[in-house]
């Protein structure tokens, strides 16, 4: 009777220990997965943040270039307006038939000039896309900062080393292989020359 009872107890203990071991193994593999995830996040989150900042900067540069061109064209439009007024003055001195024909053409040119000026002002107004997209990207960057902070907390809790190092060395290039550092045309030309193209 006592012998059976001891065997049963040992068997139960063995089963319990086996379950416990299984649980410990699963936890260990889970922790490994968390560590891998945190390490991946430690690299990709700051890289994404850097990329977003770079996009904002590129958009600003592009917007400024377009606006500089627009400002020059608008200045030419102002000059155009003055020239058309002079032309009107000259045409008013012509005989009736020529004056009417000349004024009709000048009027048409003025209408075209006004229309294109309005359209250019519309382009100007819509350049605010940079500001609007920039504000949205800023919010995305703030969200990424929150994720980064949470990853940092997890890394601290689980004693994951190298987290800070990886986060600090994030660069805009090599973002999951999707985006790489852009190269200047000069660099591309040099590279092509080196490659014999």
């Amino acid at each position: 009777m006592n012998g059976n009872s001891s065997e049963n107890l040992i068997q139960k203990l063995t089963e319990e220990l086996s379950r416990l071991l299984n649980y410990v193994e699963k936890t260990k593999s889970g922790l490994g997965y968390i560590e891998d995830t945190v390490m991946v996040g430690s690299e990709t989150v700051p890289q994404a943040s850097v990329q977003i900042s770079a996009v904002t900067g590129d958009l600003e540069s592009a917007a400024n270039i377009i606006m500089s061109i627009l400002e020059e064209v608008l200045a030419e439009h102002d000059r155009n307006h003055v020239l058309l007024e002079s032309l009107s003055g000259w045409a008013s001195g012509l005989n009736e038939k020529d004056r009417e024909e000349g004024m009709a053409i000048i009027s048409e040119i003025k209408q075209i000039t006004e229309k294109t000026k309005t359209q250019m002002m519309d382009i100007f107004s819509n350049m605010s896309f940079h500001d609007l997209s920039g504000q949205k990207l800023k919010k995305v960057n703030l969200s990424l900062s929150v994720v980064q902070s949470k990853l940092h907390d997890i890394a601290t809790t689980f004693g994951i080393k190298d987290f800070e190092t990886k986060a600090k060395t994030a660069s805009p290039g090599n973002f999951n292989g999707i985006v790489n550092d852009p190269m200047d045309q000069d660099v591309v030309d040099r590279l092509l020359k080196e490659l014999g193209t």
């Binding site: 600003e60 917007a63 400024n64 606006m67 627009l70 400002e71 608008l74 002002m121 100007f124 107004s125 350049m127 605010s128 940079h130 500001d131």
Partner: peptide, 9 residues
């Protein structure tokens, strides 16, 4: 860019 847009308008 936004200041430039507003100034031009």
């Amino acid at each position: 860019t936004m200041r430039r847009i507003i100034k031009n308008i």
